[in-house]
Simulated scan of single mutants.
Amino acid sequence: MRETSMPRPRQCRYVAVAPHVTYFKPRGIPMTALEEVRLSVDELEALRLADLEGMTGSEAARCMRVSRHTFGRTLAAARHTVAQALCRGLALRIEGGTYAVADAGAAPASAKENTMQKIAISSEGPTLDDAVDPRFGRAGGFVILALPDMTPQYLDNGASQTMSMGAGIETAERMAREGVQVVLSGYVGPKAFEALTAAGIKVCQNVDGGSVREAVERFVKGELPFADAPNK
C-alpha cells in the first residue's frame, strides 16, 4: 500500500491591518445575478505593498515575512483575481488566507523570535569573520550559535564533502542531531530542504556573499525570510 505524503503547511503571511471593506460589486447588477471571485487578505496586502506603496519585491517580502518567491506568487495571484473581477464584471470578496496582523508598535516578530534560537551558518572557517560557504550539503563546516550568545561553536562537515551522493541529507541529519532550529546558507538542494523541513528546521537561503557575522546580524534584524521551497 503506497503512503501518501502530507501537504506542506502553508507559511503564515503578515499584514499591516485587516481590511475594513471586504466586498466590491458592479453597480446596477443585483447580487443574485452576480458571480464572485475571492481575494485572500494576504493577496490584498501584496497588492497594497507593491502597487500602492510602490515597494520592491524584496522590501514587500520582508514586510510580509516571506521569501521573495512566495511574495511574487502571492502578488501574481492577486493581480489575476482583480483582473478577472474588473474584466468580467464579477463581484470581489476579500476573505481568508493564512495570515496574521503584525503589531505595528512592537519590534518585527522575526527579530523577536530569532533572539532565542539555535542557528547554524554554513561557513568556510570556524570564526564569525569567516565567509559564509555558499553550499549547504557540502559545506566545509558550520558555525553554530545559541542566540543571543555570540560564542561560536564549530561543527566540521568535511566528511560530507567526500560523499558521492546524499551529502545534503546527511548534513541535514547532522543539524538535527545538534538541535539546530534554523540554517543560514547559500544553496540548499531539494532533498536537503525536504530533510530539514521534516526535522522541523527552518531555512534561510541565498545568504552567501558575506561573513558569518554579517549573516547573523541580518538574521537578528529580521532581514532574512524563511524559505518555503528549495533554491531554484
Rank of each mutant, 00 (worst) to 15 (best):
P7S: 10
D228K: 01
L86A: 12
A85V: 05
E3F: 15
R174E: 06
L155E: 07
R27I: 13
H69M: 12
D129G: 04
H20W: 01
P9Y: 05
G96M: 10
V212Q: 06
Q11T: 13
P108C: 03
K202E: 06
I29N: 02
G179K: 04
A102Y: 03
G210I: 04
T56F: 00
V82H: 10
R213G: 08
T74G: 03
S160K: 03
A111P: 03
A50P: 00
C12N: 01
G57S: 03
G89N: 09
Y23K: 10
A16C: 05
A106S: 14
G168L: 10
L155Q: 10
V82W: 02
A167R: 10
E173S: 13
F136T: 12
R79W: 02
Q205L: 12
P9F: 06
F219M: 13
C12R: 12
K232P: 15
Q153S: 13
G125W: 03
V212S: 07
A100M: 13
E194D: 15
E35H: 12
R68C: 00
G125A: 11
A102Q: 11
S211V: 07
D133H: 14
L92Y: 08
S40G: 04
R48K: 07
V37E: 02
E217P: 01
M165T: 11
D51I: 01
E36C: 12
M165C: 07
A102L: 04
